[in-house]
C-alpha cells in the first residue's frame, strides 16, 4: 500500500455535491483548466474531485478581441468572452479524452437564450462520461446571456427550469457576485431545480492605462479573479450556505489548502481552484494532498465534519 493510499484509508475525503460523488472536495474551475489535456503533464486528472470544463455553447464562439487579460493586485481581469469550439467539438474531441483519463467531468454550459440552454442540455444529457452540468448564468464578458441571466431571480430561475426539464444529470448553478442580494438568486434557482450552487463567478472590474488614457481591456470591463476576491467569495458562500438546503461549491482566489479549508468551514461541500491553476499548474493535486494531511494531523476522520464548522 502506498503512503497516499494509507492516508486515504485513515480519513474520508469523499463528498456528494448534489448527486455528484466526488472522490475529494477539490475541483478545478471552468475556464481555468481547458479540457484537462492542458494540465496532464502536471496533474493526475483522475485524482481531482472533478474537472469543470471550459464554458460550452451550442455554436463555436470566437471570443473577444485582445487584450483579454491584465494582472491586478493579487488578481487578474479577464474578458475572454466564452471562446470555445462549440458543443459538437467538445463531444467529439474532448469528452472521449476525459473519459479515457477517468476524470469526473462537469460541463459548464452557457447560452444566449433560454432555448439555447435547453437544447445544449438535451444534447449533453445523452452523452456518456458527464457527471453533471454547471449552468453559467454569470459570465460578465459576453453581450447577450451570461450575466443578464444571473442578476434577476426570475430570469435565473427560468434558465434553471429549462435546464432541469431537459436532463436527469445533477445541475449546479454558478452564481454571480455582481448582485445586491445573492441569497435571493440562490433561493430562486434552488426552487427551480438546482441540485447544487457554485459561487462565485468573477467580479466585474476594469483597469485603465494611464499612458494611453484608455481602458486596458479591449472589452473595457472584465471579470476579476484571484486571491483579491477571496474575502468576497467566502462571505457569499457563508451567507448562502446557511439559507439553502443544497450543497455549495466555493470558488474564488483559492491558491493553497488553507484557502480551501476556509471555504469548507464557511459551508462549502466542495471547492474549485481557478486562477491558482495559472500560477502553479500542479496546485489542485497539491491541495488534495495537503487537505488530507491536515485531516490526519488534526485527527479528523471525515472532511464533512468541517463543512460549515465556522458558522456562528
Amino acid at each position: 500500500m502506498s503512503e497516499r493510499n494509507q492516508v486515504q484509508a485513515e480519513v474520508n475525503m469523499e463528498v456528494n455535491l448534489g448527486g455528484i460523488a466526488l472522490a475529494n472536495p477539490v475541483t478545478v474551475a471552468s475556464g481555468t483548466f481547458g479540457y484537462g489535456r492542458e494540465y496532464e503533464a502536471y496533474v493526475d486528472l483522475a485524482r481531482l474531485g472533478a474537472i469543470i470544463v471550459k464554458g460550452t455553447t451550442l455554436e463555436p464562439r470566437a471570443g473577444n478581441p485582445t487584450p483579454r487579460i491584465i494582472e491586478t493586485p493579487a488578481g487578474m481581469l479577464n474578458a475572454v468572452g466564452l471562446q470555445n469550439p462549440g458543443v459538437d467539438v467538445f463531444i467529439q474531441e474532448h469528452l472521449p479524452y476525459l473519459r479515457e483519463k477517468q476524470a469526473t467531468v462537469i460541463v459548464n454550459i452557457a447560452g444566449n437564450t433560454v432555448e439555447e440552454y435547453a437544447r445544449l442540455t438535451a444534447i449533453l444529457d445523452k452523452q456518456d462520461g458527464i457527471a453533471g452540468l454547471e449552468v453559467n448564468i454569470s459570465c460578465p464578458n459576453v453581450e447577450k446571456g451570461g450575466l443578464q441571466f444571473g442578476t434577476d431571480p426570475n430570469t435565473a430561475a427560468g434558465v434553471v427550469a429549462a435546464v432541469r426539464q431537459n436532463t436527469s444529470l445533477p445541475v449546479i448553478v454558478k452564481l454571480s457576485p455582481n448582485v445586491t442580494d445573492v441569497v435571493a438568486i440562490a433561493r430562486a434557482v434552488v426552487e427551480a431545480g438546482a441540485d447544487a450552487l457554485s459561487l462565485i463567478n468573477t467580479l466585474l472590474g476594469m483597469a485603465i492605462d494611464i499612458e494611453t488614457r484608455r481602458p486596458v481591456l479591449a472589452n473595457i470591463f472584465g471579470g476579476l479573479s484571484g486571491p483579491a476576491i477571496k474575502p468576497v467569495a467566502l462571505r457569499m458562500v457563508y451567507q448562502v450556505a446557511r439559507e439553502v438546503e443544497v450543497p455549495i461549491m466555493g470558488v474564488g482566489g483559492i491558491v493553497n489548502w488553507q484557502d480551501a479549508l476556509e471555504f469548507i468551514l464557511a459551508g462549502a461541500t466542495a471547492v474549485s481552484i481557478g486562477t491558482g491553476n495559472f500560477i502553479n499548474p500542479g496546485i489542485s493535486e497539491q491541495i488534495i494532498d495537503d487537505l488530507e494531511n491536515y485531516l490526519v494531523e488534526q485527527g479528523i476522520r471525515d472532511i464533512r465534519q468541517l463543512i460549515g464548522a465556522a458558522w456562528l
Partner: peptide
C-alpha cells in the same frame, strides 16, 4: 499552457 485563453 493554453488554458486561460488570454493570449489570443
Amino acid at each position: 499552457i493554453g488554458a486561460c485563453l488570454g493570449c489570443a
